[in-house]
């Protein structure tokens, strides 16, 4: 037990700290005041409830989704899904399809889930500003400028490395085929499959006519 409580306590402290770093998040949090989102993920023994007020409280739900989702009202949303489906929930157009496919079970007000997603997705934290409160403006600016330069160099190096490796294995060493060759091969396979299907259909017609 204390391990799970330690997890929720840490997550709660972290979430509230991060939200407090963005002044605009207060308005989005106010929209969620009094609302709850409970998420059950397949493979996890407990559900997790986010209860919204002036801050976010995290509770563990020890009862299964089927038991707790009966307490549904306009201020609650219960979700049961797979971990890898979570990112798709931000796209409203996909929700109906996910429910039809049985990948998402939803009870209550789905708008709450979207408001929660917005609360976190729209976080805009000026990390340089945050750092400057501890280090002062000049060191914070230098640290972030250096970090940006390093990041750009790493990205450029990574791109050069990828291109070099790609050339080496496709052109020089001839270990793998090039992108165009793969596309051509795929097209040939598609054409062969279409031919086979046509041939099968023709055979079936002939069989029926005999």
């Amino acid at each position: 037990m204390p391990a799970s409580s330690l997890f929720t306590a840490s997550a709660e402290a972290l979430i509230n700290k991060v939200i407090a770093l963005d002044e605009d998040s207060e308005k989005r949090l106010a929209l969620l005041n009094g609302k709850r989102l409970t998420v059950f993920l397949d493979g996890f023994p407990w559900g997790v409830t986010l209860a919204f007020s002036s801050k976010v409280d995290i509770l563990l739900e020890h009862h299964p989704y089927e038991d707790v989702s009966v307490h549904v009202d306009e201020n609650t949303c219960y979700i049961k899904t797979h971990f890898d489906v979570l990112p798709r929930l931000t796209q409203t157009s996909q929700i109906t399809q996910l429910i039809r496919e049985g990948k998402l079970h939803l009870q209550g007000e789905p708008g709450i889930a979207q408001q929660v997603a917005a609360l976190f997705q729209q976080l805009d934290i000026d990390w340089e500003e945050q750092l400057s409160t501890y280090t002062g403006d000049v060191p914070a600016h230098q640290i972030f400028s250096s970090a940006s330069a390093v990041k750009a160099q790493v990205l450029a190096f990574s791109e050069r490395l990828t291109r070099g490796l790609s050339n080496a294995i496709t052109e020089e060493k001839d270990i793998a085929v090039g992108k165009l060759a793969v596309m051509h091969f795929n097209d040939e396979v598609d054409a062969l499959r279409d031919d086979a299907q046509r041939f099968e259909a023709r055979l079936r017609l002939l069989e029926n006519s005999l």
Binding site: P2, S4, S5, L6, A9, H71, N75
Partner: peptide, 18 residues
């Protein structure tokens, strides 16, 4: 500090709602 976790578990089990 573990008393905070014991209390947190109690709150989880309380099933308190709006």
């Amino acid at each position: 500090g573990v008393h905070r976790l014991w209390k947190r578990y109690t709150i989880d089990c309380a099933g308190v709602r709006a």
